[in-house]
Design a protein around this nucleic acid. Structure first.
Length: 641
RNA sequence: GCCGGAGUAGCUCAGGUGGUAGAGCAGCUGAUUUGUAAUCAGCUGGUCGGGGGUUCGAUUCCCUUCUCCGGCUCCA
């Protein structure tokens, strides 16, 4: 029979041969690295016989599928160790998690004993034994009904629930050593393949992710085919910790969240506030330059406004309680849109004047459940870089395309050039006619396609009033963050009777687009801190330059240089303390100030400065004008280096 | 909200089987005049997260509450 490989080459083999044998026939190296096989389009174990002509790809850890198989097998390995140590454990589910950054596996367990860090070490030690035993993974099959009966007999309720739902009349099991688990597979050949692993954490997780269900214990782990890869992965995790915006926010004195003020409420310290000011200034200028007008709206409004908008009906649980004053209820705003609608309704509008693009950095308050608060990304008060476009149906397409371009301009300015785009369709709980949802979804889709942006459909993930496009940006560590959302809305215009006067004098319904590009200023700031590791590019750095005099005698010259730069609108400070230069440099490096200008008697005499760049080190001695021009150029171009 | 863990000086942490705590850094004062990542000395600084209980006595034991951390769920 003929086996065809991915490069379209082929070889002849006897029927019944396994992928493992074929891998060995190709090369010893491949045989060693082989984890599983893809026969035609099906992932199978290496030892499954191939009986007819087929396409074959040997799967290794380098393949995405290979990693998932490897981690899935690791979950089995971990479960087998747990069953040896805690035989009373009921196993729930143990998959691999595909994620660019947080790649890992877990197993959800039901056991009375509360697992601790210490237990993780015990489990790791037991896993190491099972790896040393090099137990092969062996597949077997059973009629589904028989398996179901056994699970019910053994009171293995989680497996029974899964067995009750899988398709087909047989289910497969994988055994290694004395451990058996129902599993679709495939798996790596044997436990000996899993040479390097680490259990990361234990946490609660609801069965099937439903908070009505029982809370199980979940152990997360990572594993790799060799120790080097594991070490690299753990190093990556350590690096991420150093970039954590909560840590940097404290160390660089950017912001704080204070217990006495309240959880999820951000205090912007001067340096953080300055960065925010620059971002917001850039944002406003760019909006005005792109045909937007700025508006401001209050922080509270009559409760009835939110009832009419539908927010009360859909998000009451996540809104702060109303404030009662003079027998009237007022609501702290969770959204800006009803206000913008009221601005629109302040007068009549001609079809000639549309579209209106109204933008506001609007601070909203949402009651987030206590357990979900997290640094800057998840807070109770935050500022949306919001805008609403009111347009005619015939303008919708162009508006959306313009928005996509405008958005990418923003993201790229901050150095985000990789992103995933999603189109979210109608959710279960929503308002409006099927027809308007179809139109809105179609409009978003067309815009994406006209702009040639690849996207994934996120079924049922739209907002109650309309479908949306979401953009998740990828940061320097490969993590994705949701920022942009662009939502088409036929519903609020309906509820608030938003119209314009058409050419023929009739009143026609306007269409609204809701959009936030950076999302929340707080969250975006958090993302930026992590993206840059606290070392902001020159245009954003709160202190762009620090002058470091070597001895007190040149303090006047240092101040003179500072004044020159300040005159060019560069943010500069001078460190005139009687400290050794190494001390001042160390401090400036820790503050991640992009330019350190060291001046001593030599520089004073020559009217020069010795330039040191953050992380790059000593650059050399240049004229003040030279470095000033360089810095101004970087600011002007919003350079990222 | 749920599961688990943790709250000691501004920060990072040590300590104590119940007798009111200690270091480094930061801050302050002084000395030092220094050439590319930490000069030296002295001083200040804590109701040991809050409240309640047990006790002669609680930072330590118990209860409760708040906040944070790792997750789950949720996120207009």
């Amino acid at each position: 029979m003929k086996i065809t490989f991915p490069d379209n080459s082929s070889r002849e083999y006897q029927p019944g041969i396994t992928a493992a044998d074929i891998a060995k026939d190709i090369s010893q190296g491949l045989a060693k690295r082989a984890l599983a096989a893809k026969v035609n389009d099906e992932l199978v174990d290496l030892n499954r016989p191939i009986n007819q002509d087929a396409g074959l790809r040997i799967i290794t850890f380098d393949d995405e599928e290979g990693k998932l198989i490897f981690w899935h097998s690791s979950a089995h390995l971990m479960a087998s160790a747990i069953m040896r140590l805690f035989p009373q454990t009921k196993l729930a589910i143990g998959p691999a998690v595909p994620d660019d950054f947080a790649a890992r596996f877990y197993y959800d367990l039901d056991l009375d004993h509360k697992l601790t860090e210490k237990d993780l070490e015990l489990i790791e030690a037991e896993m190491a034994k099972i790896v040393a035993e090099d137990r092969p993974f062996v597949r077997s099959e059973k009629p589904r009904q028989a398996a179901l009966a056994e699970f019910n007999r053994d009171n293995d309720l989680y497996k029974a629930e899964i067995a009750g739902e899988v398709e087909g009349e047989t289910v497969s099991f994988y055994t290694h050593g004395d451990f058996i688990d129902m599993c679709r597979g495939p798996h790596v050949p044997s436990t000996g393949k899993i040479k390097a692993f680490k259990l990361l954490s234990v946490a609660g997780a609801y069965w099937r992710g439903d908070e009505k269900n029982k809370m199980l214990q979940r152990i997360y782990g990572v594993s790799f085919p060799d120790k080097q890869l594991l070490a690299e992965h753990l190093e990556k995790i350590e690096q991420a910790k150093l970039r954590d915006h909560r840590l940097l926010g404290k160390n660089l004195d950017l912001f704080s969240i204070n217990d006495e003020v309240g959880p999820g409420l951000v205090l912007w310290h001067p340096k953080g506030a300055l960065i925010r000011h620059i971002i917001e200034g850039f944002w406003k200028d760019a909006h005005i330059a792109n045909g937007y007008e700025l508006v401001y709206t209050p922080h509270i409004a009559r409760l009835e406004l939110w009832d009419r908008s539908g927010h009360l009906g859909f998000y009451k649980e996540n809104m702060f309680k109303p404030i009662e004053i003079e027998n009237q209820n007022y609501q702290l705003k969770p959204m800006n849109c009803p206000f913008h609608i009221q601005i629109y309704k302040a007068r009549k509008h001609s079809y000639r004047d549309l579209p209106y693009r109204w933008a506001e950095l609007g601070t909203v308050y949402r009651f987030e459940r206590s357990g979900v608060l997290h640094g800057l990304p998840r807070v109770r008060g935050f500022t949306q870089d919001d805008a609403h476009v009111f347009c005619r149906p015939d303008q919708l397409q162009d508006e959306l395309i313009g928005l996509l371009d405008f958005n990418l301009f923003f993201l790229e300015t901050f150095g985000f050039d990789k992103y995933n785009t999603y189109l979210s369709t109608r959710p279960e709980h929503s308002v409006g006619s099927d027809e308007s949802w179809a139109r809105a979804t179609e409009a978003l889709k067309n815009a994406l396609e006209k702009r040639g942006l690849p996207y994934q459909i996120d079924p049922g993930e739209g907002v109650f009033y309309g479908p949306k496009i979401d953009v998740k940006i990828k940061d320097n560590l490969g993590r994705f963050w949701q920022c942009t959302t662009i939502q088409v809305d036929f519903n609020l215009p309906e509820k608030f009777d938003v119209t314009y006067t058409a050419e023929d004098g009739s009143e026609k319904r306007a269409i609204m687009i809701h959009r936030a590009l950076l999302g929340s200023i707080e969250r975006f700031f958090g993302i930026l801190i992590e993206q840059y590791g606290g070392a902001f590019p020159v245009w954003l750095a709160p202190i762009q330059v620090i002058i470091l005099p070597v001895v007190d005698e040149v303090n006047d010259y240092a101040e003179h240089v500072a004044q020159m730069l300040r005159g060019a609108a560069i943010r500069v400070e001078t460190d005139k303390r009687s400290q050794k230069i190494g001390y001042k440099i160390r401090e400036a490096e820790n503050l991640k100030i992009p330019y350190m200008l060291i001046v001593g008697k030599k520089e004073e005499a020559e009217h020069t400065v010795s330039v040191r760049r953050h992380k790059l080190g000593d650059i050399g001695v240049v004229a003040v004008e030279t470095v000033s021009a360089e810095i101004l150029q970087k600011i002007k171009t919003k350079s990222l280096d």
